[in-house]
Design a protein around this nucleic acid. Structure first.
Length: 240
DNA sequence: CCAGACGTTGTT
DNA sequence: GTCTGG
DNA sequence: CCAGACGTTGTT
DNA sequence: GTCTGG
């Protein structure tokens, strides 16, 4: 699955690479705002950049809250629960139906984390966090859905990340991974008038050229640790 | 028909 | 164990 | 996803 | 809004 990711690429580069412009007025949702700093540990409920087609027909990058809050939600409390949607079944789910039809988006990232559960003789199983990213750390687009919810306390736009079966690289660590879209598939995914999105094809697990795996620090488990130190792997023989 | 939920993951 | 918050 | 809390009453 | 369960 994808419950934590990284976005350290500068805004200007994102605009260039995804042919989209940031909104003039950054969103402020629930007291949080779109951060301009490099993010090494993005967590659910964070406000992050997402590419959408806006009313003017152009691609825009806006700050949305991670964790889908459908427009019919009574409050924001469920907002941290719908952080992912399974590509295989998203068509069948009432909670996603509306967003899937006309509100698809791209979630920008330059890495995602997965935790490998290691066998343990003692009590709790150990978790080894792993970063998956391109070897040159260039950003990529994950398939997402978004929704608009009206408060009180105000307007909240939010998103969820589609997941699919792990490919050959991710499989040994975890059985799920985010659905990453090739550049060639992005425009069709974003187009709300495109009613022929072949999700089955897009979700087919396949290798991604240049993608690699790196062991990282267990510090990444705590959302408070949001700096480059989370990339430093734990010492090999640390206590047992 | 109405009422009530609407999600994913992992672990046992 | 299970729910909430980030 | 992981980490951290998980409760009520009354008093300051 | 839309689906499921009763």
């Amino acid at each position: 699955m994808c419950g934590r990711y990284r976005l350290t690429t500068k805004g200007k580069n994102l605009e260039q690479l995804f042919d989209a412009e940031f909104d003039d007025q950054p969103a402020r949702l629930e007291g949080r705002e779109l951060s301009v700093k490099p993010r090494f540990n993005v967590a659910p409920t964070d406000v992050m950049p997402v590419v959408r087609i806006q009313e003017d027909g152009r691609h825009h990058i806006s700050g949305l809250r991670w964790g889908l809050v459908p427009f019919w939600s009574k409050d924001l409390s469920g907002g941290a629960r719908m952080i992912n949607a399974r590509a295989e079944t998203v068509f069948e789910k009432a909670a996603f139906k509306d967003s899937l039809r006309r509100r698809r988006c791209l979630v920008l990232a330059d890495g995602f984390y997965e935790w490998k559960t290691l066998p343990s003789t003692t009590q709790k199983p150990k978790k080894q966090p792993v970063l998956f990213a391109f070897d040159d750390d260039r950003p990529f687009a994950m398939a997402g859905l978004w929704a608009r919810w009206k408060g009180p306390p105000g307007l909240v736009e939010s998103f969820t990340i589609l997941t699919t079966g792990a490919n050959e690289l991710v499989g040994p660590v975890h059985d799920r991974m985010p659905l990453i879209l090739d550049a060639a598939d992005r425009a069709a995914w974003l187009d709300p008038d495109n009613e022929d999105v072949d999700l089955q094809r897009l979700a087919e697990p396949r290798p991604i050229a240049g993608f690699t795996l790196r062991l990282v620090s267990s510090k990444v488990g705590n959302v408070k640790n949001d700096d480059e130190s989370v990339l430093v792997p734990d010492a090999p023989d640390e206590k047992s």
